[in-house]
């Protein structure tokens, strides 16, 4: 069973040590790669022969979309870790991933809208890809709200974990919506089964941007989780002192 190994890394002290070492690398990698990817995409990559320069929005839109889905997948993994192994950090991680994932989803929808207006002539269409992405945003917001909806935090964690597991069904719908339905949205940029059909001069800045956003997402979630672990320790110490004093 993997449980003993998981719990070794779930120890808050061990987590603080590991994350303290990892965080600067994630932050530096995220900053450098994002700056290179976005700079390359904005100033050096070619314009699209059909879409003109509006295609440069892809260097933000696609990484944000990938992280929105990856973040929710992370919530579902945290839910499994919490339900099956009672992993002590899984609920805290879910609390911290939620708002960052919601931000990535909102950024994806906003940049998609800014890209859609000049290309489709509309800020929004009820297309399968756009609608399933909007559902993802509501799932994130529901997850954030459920955690805070109960006086007992444990009940909030349980309810949010159930929503995370049920809501994960939206992820394949988002991924395959452009294949299952006739959509206005263009087909997937990256596929598991074939090489990207994009021009190489666009693929590289996009890949670098995806890597930079991923490192940045990891750094922000790690920093928030470190803060949450320390805040929990502070609460525990304060309560222990209050009980001693009473």
């Amino acid at each position: 069973m993997a449980a003993p190994n998981l719990h070794r890394f779930a120890n808050p002290g061990q987590f603080l040590r590991l994350s303290g070492w990892l965080l600067p690398w994630l932050a530096i990698g995220g900053t450098v790669l994002t700056a290179v990817g976005l700079g390359w995409g904005l100033f050096l990559s070619p314009a699209d022969w059909q879409q003109g320069d509006s295609v440069r929005i892809i260097y933000i839109h696609v990484p944000a979309a990938m992280l929105a889905s990856a973040g929710y997948f992370g919530l579902a993994v945290c839910a499994v870790l919490s339900f099956v192994w009672r992993h002590p950090l899984a609920d805290l991680a879910a609390v911290e991933i939620g708002p960052v994932g919601a931000g990535a989803t909102a950024l994806c929808l906003a940049t998609g809208s800014l890209w859609g207006k000049p290309m489709w002539g509309a800020w929004w269409v009820w297309d399968a890809r756009l609608t399933s992405m909007l559902v993802l945003l509501f799932l994130y917001l529901g997850h954030i709200a459920l955690i805070r909806a109960f006086d007992n935090p444990e009940r909030g964690y349980r309810a949010a974990a159930i929503l995370a597991l049920i809501g994960a069904a939206d992820l394949p719908v988002i991924k395959f919506s452009v294949d299952w339905w006739n959509t206005l949205h263009q087909p997937a940029t990256f596929k598991f089964t074939s090489a990207p059909t994009m021009y190489q001069g666009m693929v590289w800045p996009l890949l670098i941007s995806v890597a930079g956003f991923s490192f940045g997402f990891g750094a922000i979630v790690t920093a928030r989780l470190r803060a949450a672990v320390m805040e929990r320790r502070i609460r525990g110490l304060m309560m222990a002192r209050a009980q001693e004093a009473a």
């Binding site: 003109g52 509006s54 929005i57 906003a110 940049t111 800014l114 890209w115 000049p118």
Partner: peptide
């Protein structure tokens, strides 16, 4: 399309 590209990058 600068009026769309600049807000997208600024927002990010």
């Amino acid at each position: 399309h600068l009026t769309y590209i600049i807000p997208a990058y600024a927002l990010a």
